[in-house]
Design a protein around this nucleic acid. Structure first.
Lengths: 189, 189
DNA sequence: TCAAACTTTCAGAAATTACTGAAAATTGGA
DNA sequence: TCCAATTTTCAGTAATTTCTGAAAGTTTGA
């Protein structure tokens, strides 16, 4: 690996972090490299920069594409494929959230939904099912909320985040308003 | 493994999911088992239920304790250690968020902070550094917001989540109120 | 202090995952 | 169509992670 020092430590860190994130070292490193690169890179540029094999690069790029974290483009007069990450960090963040939702949360929700519909065959099963239902409801609520948030435009989202915990006060305020006019702040179950 | 069918599929699912989550199969299975169990279990109960070795169970429990996802307790008149998960699913969720923050986000923030303070040695480094700064700011904002949310009481949190995207309208409303009184809804950078 | 009950450690085996190089497949232009 | 450039696949190897059983360690009560 032969990279300027800042880039190198960034790339290496993402390589290490990969394992906490369910992606392998090479995938993490390549993503980091593309993220900081001022221009799109082709597979050989990546091999040169990271120092892994050509085939490994190919696999890693395929995985990054499956995660929708890299864009593929062609440069005029060059047959090779060039890769880059989206410029907008918020867009990247949203993509990541969507993909993790799809890969990690959906399957669990499906399993839980199935389990909850079954007929418990004992007192123990009944308890287990009740616990699963609690988990299901929490995940579903958080998931829906995330989806709502994801779909906000970036300005609103930033405003909301900067507001932070103060949103509580706003909520309390609108609740009292709601009581006055006979309506409440949110939908009920 | 000899468990009632619902429990078994739940336990197996968590085992599989573990790998996406950076924990190993046994750890996932044991957590799932404890989560649905109506009473605390000791290490031998777990070995019996899951069908792994005693030592593996010991390691896995240690890891779950490091994640603060299981409670250790003693039953009167029994020397063995009994394990259970907290009852409150929201508390579990918060613990998980805190631990992941500490393990996955903090180290990245530290690395980014360091890189941003360095003097770039070329135009390419300057660009890389600017990208890292974008990432840093996004992560920091999201992190702070998460912390704010984590510290809300469950009722407020649930109300906020159920409100979902409608919070936008509330925000817009308070913003116009703010303009009238000469203040704005959130803190600025 | 000793013994029984229980837990942890650890070296090596087993399983899984990542990586490579060679070969096959695909693509675009002559 | 054919050739050269490029990408992908895949079988085998390397590296890493997980798991086990045996042994060592700890704790409690007699």
């Amino acid at each position: 690996m032969n990279l300027p020092p800042l880039t190198q430590s960034f790339v290496l860190h993402f390589g290490e972090m990969g394992s906490h994130w369910g992606i392998n070292r090479t995938v993490g490193q390549i993503y980091a490299l593309l993220y900081v690169s001022p221009k799109p890179l082709n597979a050989d540029d990546i091999v040169e920069a990271i120092g892994c094999s050509r085939s490994n690069t190919s696999m890693a790029l395929k995985e990054l594409q499956a995660w929708r974290l890299v864009k593929l483009q062609h440069l005029p007069g060059d047959r090779r494929e060039y890769f880059s990450t989206p410029d907008d960090v918020w867009a990247i963040f949203k993509t990541l959230a969507e993909e993790r939702q799809k890969r990690e949360v959906e399957p669990t929700l499906t399993m839980l939904r199935g389990a909850i519909l079954e007929r418990p065959s004992s007192e123990e099963e009944r308890h287990a099912q009740a616990r699963m239902k609690e988990m299901y409801q929490l995940i579903e609520l958080v998931t829906k909320w995330f989806a709502d948030i994801r779909d906000m435009d970036v300005e609103t989202l930033q405003r909301l985040m900067k507001l932070g915990a103060q949103v509580q006060k706003v909520l309390q305020f609108t609740q009292s308003l709601g009581r006055l006019t006979g309506r409440d702040g949110g939908k009920e179950e």
